[in-house]
Nucleic acid binder design. Structure first.
Lengths: 210, 210, 210, 210
DNA sequence: CATGAATGAGTCTTCATTCAT
DNA sequence: GATGAATGAAGACTCATTCAT
């Protein structure tokens, strides 16, 4: 089992405008290279070229290839997680149907916000990001437990399991959607079905009707 | 020379007992190496050593490394898909609740039948098996469409979408389960929740009560 | 301070005739490259080329560049140390003058036996071999302590210090000799002076005339 | 671009106090870096950082890395050589025993004056300084020939060889002493033994008792 | 003058694949 | 058929040096 390489955090904080721009280009280039040639054939040199810089510069900001990949992944996960956390905040104290819809919509929207990045990062997640994904997933589950507890109309037992199932059951179809290109029509169908599924699933496991 | 992706099917059918045994050892060794050092550090030499043969022999049966990995993946997928197909056959014409339970149980059982293999093959699937997975997934969806049409008590519209959601929504939690080691208690909980979820989901989308 | 890299012992023992030959070529090539372009510009590829093989083959027998260099150094040190140990054995129980002459001659002969190698390995010793040199130096000092104790005519106190000084005081001039090309005339002069120096040094520190 | 070996002398003479200070910091930093991480991992950037400046500034005073290292080495050699030359001046016309003691003491004192620097510069000498060392060694040998000719009590033939042996025979043990950390007790022992050795060596080669 | 971001040639090392024995 | 030594293309990463700010 792959054990994490050390020193995965950026070597140097970009302080000048030029640096910030360089780092930004590298991020973008990484997604593009991932999309165009795949993780398998992504090389640091290729990323640097695509970013319009040199390998040396890349290594000034990222201690190694994995760190770069993880940085890109983290940025994406952070966006998704924060979207969901915000949605959870908005949905507090609403009826369960609203919560289900809000959550599913936030999740689908976040994932589809940058389809390229979402798709490109799938292999990264599976090759390097397991631990990071687990960390962020926990944040999501906590946020979900939180909203569910505030649901206006119903109450749940075993919230941890419910949040687990709910998160993964939504992830599966959305991931599959992304892998096939996220056709708009299919997307809408998936969105609708997920809302219904989550909603009916939650209703099945409520323990008390307030 | 590492190059072509073609010729991915076994070079020769093992016709003799010795050959079969060799191929079998290589399969087993592949899973073990995958489990012990990860896909990243799996080398053909290492697999051969573990299998008690030489690289040369390995290449006698598999044209290249990817072919080997795909063969192992395919064997696993085939087992899972056939389990589900059989379950579908058994569940024909039953009430929807029975169908849901049968499907989920078959799926969970198949995935957990050889946890080592299931876990070990996750990265293989993501690195090489996308296309193969799609192919087998389609078989599953077809089988599911089939049973659902025969359900004793209800009838559905848009079966394709339902089969898609159903498959992926079950896959997500089970995959996550495997990645965390498939603890028996959690496994039972997931199994129960999935049955309820699938069941209530299907009920939500039936268009007619026979 | 440079800390030793791990895994410095050969990866694989050469068992076939072909392998032995290959390893031998690599040893020779290393000395030649060292002589021709210096340690600074010695690359594993260059060594392999010079040896008439490929880098890959080189790495089949040596886990990394340092291991190669150290193996070559060790072989050289072993030859020198064994020469001295043999000389010590031969000189046991002789008069002190004979011992001094035997030791100096054995040392000078061993060092000049393969001038190319001796010269080529100087930088290797200083960059990587400190520890190994210390180890072999101890063997030499022990051997010297041994002979000195058997000297027919005299007896010494503080043998450890005497052996230390003796070894290093002889090494200095011989090393310098090598660095300047070991001209035969100078060599003979150095040999003679060293014998006299060692002899008179030992006489100065004997504590008892038997 | 790493290339030419020319232009190894300082680019500019530090004329202002600030410059002198900067150069001084860089010298000190070089020794420290050498001591802490070794020549192998000494980088110009690291030296500049340690000196509290930037690489750019470093390159204002030294045309390249080697020039910097050689400058540091030269300063050290100059100190040692001048110490010996002064000792030689002081020892003129004294009896041979006094000359021997004075020389050895001057040499040991000079080398141990800054143990850190002496130790740190060993690899530099072997990687870059051969030629410079030869140059300074010649100055030492000339100075030694000079004193020996003025010895009150004895006279020598073949002074060049004697000076050569004498210098190298003293260098060997002192170098070894430094490499092992120059423990005070051992240092005193070495000092005493060297004085005796040099003295008896010289007596053995005098050709005339005045 | 000082700074430190950018450059990219140059090294080590790995490993899929072949083929002589 | 089996073996495992040989091959060498490919990729990660370093660091001396420059030069725009």
């Amino acid at each position: 089992m792959p054990s994490a390489k050390l020193a995965l955090s950026p070597k140097k904080m970009p302080v000048q405008a030029r640096s910030t721009f360089t780092v930004e280009s590298i991020f973008t280039a990484t997604i593009q290279v991932l999309r165009d040639v795949g993780l398998e054939r992504l090389t640091t040199t290729r990323v640097a070229e695509r970013a319009g810089t040199s390998v040396g510069t890349l290594y000034q900001y990222f201690p190694n290839k994995n760190a770069l990949l993880l940085a890109v992944l983290e940025r994406h996960l952070l966006f998704v997680v924060q979207s969901i956390e915000n949605a959870c905040k908005d949905a507090r104290c609403k009826p369960i149907a609203d919560i289900a819809a809000t959550l599913v919509n936030a999740f689908v929207d976040a994932k589809l916000h940058d389809v390229d990045a979402s798709v490109a990062l799938i292999p990264v997640r599976h090759k390097l990001g397991e631990e990071m994904v687990v960390r962020y997933t926990q944040r999501v589950e906590i946020a979900i437990c939180d909203v569910l507890m505030t649901a206006q109309d119903v109450k749940f037992g075993d919230l941890r399991t419910i949040a687990f199932i709910l998160t993964k059951a939504a992830l599966g179809p959305v991931q599959a959607l992304l892998e096939t290109g996220a056709h708009p029509v299919l997307t809408q169908a998936v969105r609708g079905h997920l809302i219904v599924m989550i909603n009916s699933y939650l209703r099945s496991f409520m323990i008390e009707n307030r």
